[in-house]
Design a protein around this nucleic acid. Structure first.
Lengths: 152, 152
DNA sequence: TATTGTTATACTCTATAACTATA
DNA sequence: TATAGTTATAGAGTATAACAATA
């Protein structure tokens, strides 16, 4: 069977598709939606306010409300009113949310390692460092909590 | 400002996020939803039946019906009943769908080139060939029309 | 009977606009 | 007035289950 060489655009777009598929599958295996999994990843670094959450996920405040509502109903997160400014609510992980989020990230890490198992270590390091620079240079998600283990 | 080194998982997941953002933005600039843009990319290789379309996009047949309904309403695609098996309907691009899809793919290609402009050519080739092998090895989208210019 | 596609229904995610509570 | 968040409403996308038409 003829295997056409992928150009850089096709390789990146279809590679991104594989990564997205891994995240979606891993989320489903933990009974999470993709957005709930992202929420758990963001909150793994500590509580944030609704406004900060919307900025991090790049969705509107009303979308944020709905997402947190459903996650709260699923016992993954909880809200707290800030004492010093009672307009502001922080969101934090429940014990279950923390546990499930940790398991989700571990699964994604494992599946990605499996996907790239046949790529030589030297090439993998070039890929990692190049992507790393592109991601960190681009401020597309500039306010992202800057923890290296964040999987979202 | 401290810039933490991203591990391979974080680099890939966040890199995939940047690519997805580019596709979403490019789609929006052509008044397409992300799924409509994917639909136009698949159909760029020629008409397919509803069943084939569902398999390519990895969605159920009822989801396929809704997606094609809305795309047809937006004058991007059209249906045809197969003469030799009147149960089967093929979907093909309209002239507008072809034009908009082509413009979308060109825009994605351009934006990705810009995103990676500072990565040395040698590294970019390692990245391309490694991703290319991973994508082609994995049958996650095995029935994908095997054209190199496919951007979805 | 099996296959192809549509319809009915429901849930998630998203957005805009109007609203409440607090500062 | 301005800010933080919620509610009302609407549309896209997804799924499952039941259905119609055709093979």
């Amino acid at each position: 069977m003829h295997q056409p060489k992928l150009d850089i655009t096709a390789a990146l777009v279809r590679g991104a598709g594989l990564i997205s598929d891994i995240c979606a599958t891993a989320a489903a295996e933990h009974d999470l939606t993709v957005q709930q999994a992202q929420l758990l990843c963001v909150l793994a670094h500590g509580p944030v306010t609704m406004a900060q959450l919307g900025a991090l996920l790049r969705i509107t405040k009303s979308s944020t409300t709905g997402l947190v509502d459903r996650a709260e109903e699923a016992n993954l997160v909880a809200r707290n009113t800030q004492a010093h400014d009672r307009r502001s609510h922080t969101v934090h992980l429940t014990q279950a949310g923390d546990r499930i989020g940790t398991a989700y990230r571990a699964l994604v890490t494992e599946r990605i390692a499996a996907l790239f198992q046949d790529v030589p270590g030297v090439e993998l390091e070039v890929l990692r460092s190049a992507l790393s620079r592109v991601v960190l240079t681009n401020q597309a998600r500039e306010n992202w909590p800057a923890a290296a283990e964040s999987v979202a």
